[in-house]
């Protein structure tokens, strides 16, 4: 049995759990706890260890999706989750510019963990105040060769498209490296 791992990371409340829930064939093994810090009470629960989703591609091939905890105090989990990943998705909350700096920092950290392909998914594009992907690229200084994709994490098709684009990026890098 071949297993492949993709990590979904991003700041607190970017929509990582929802992203995995939308595409996973099993109920996401979410390790969520009630929010205790007042400043982070924009949602009821948050991921404290990881989210885990699974997609069976064939009898001998399974894709695992791991969602990282968004809060910095659980960042010791990141390194563990990053080990052996094929690539990663950095999920942004497009309506919360206050999280962009944190997103950039998470991106840099994961890039340092493993030089694997990644894409940036600009989530919550269905909301009126969402920053456009091309503006987010400039705001987060994302290089032109990295894809910044519009995303609505509640939409399964949309999530699937983000994963496909990541896989295309993996192929491109494999081709480039010969």
């Amino acid at each position: 049995m071949q297993t492949v791992k993709i990590v979904v990371t991003g700041p607190f409340s970017a929509g990582k759990t929802q992203f995995i829930q939308s595409i996973s064939e099993i109920d996401v093994v979410a390790t969520e706890r009630k929010i205790s810090r007042a400043e982070e009470r924009v949602k009821d629960q948050t991921t404290v260890a990881m989210d885990f989703g699974r997609i069976s591609v064939a009898d001998d091939l399974v894709l695992y999706l791991f969602g990282t905890p968004g809060q910095r105090r659980f960042d010791f989990m990141w390194e563990i989750l990053a080990e052996g990943m094929l690539g990663f998705v950095v999920l942004l909350d497009s309506v919360k510019p206050e999280t962009f700096r944190e997103a950039r920092s998470i991106l840099d950290t994961f890039r340092a963990y493993a030089p694997v392909p990644y894409v940036v998914a600009a989530n919550k594009q269905d909301l009126e105040d969402a920053w456009a992907p091309e503006d987010l690229r400039i705001a987060l200084r994302i290089p032109s060769e990295i894809k910044v994709l519009p995303c609505v994490a509640t939409d399964r098709e949309n999530v699937q498209q983000v994963l496909l684009e990541l896989l295309f990026s993996v192929l491109e890098i494999m081709d480039a490296e010969g």
């Binding site: 791992k5 064939a58 990053a82 052996g84 493993a114 498209q161 896989l167």
Partner: peptide, 29 residues
Amino acid sequence: PGKAPVTMRPPAVKRGVVERLISFFQQRS
């Protein structure tokens, strides 16, 4: 600042596996 990130090796996944994943998602779309 937190501890310095550790550089790890990218996974050894064959091209064929990636192509199968792409094909799988394309069929589902």
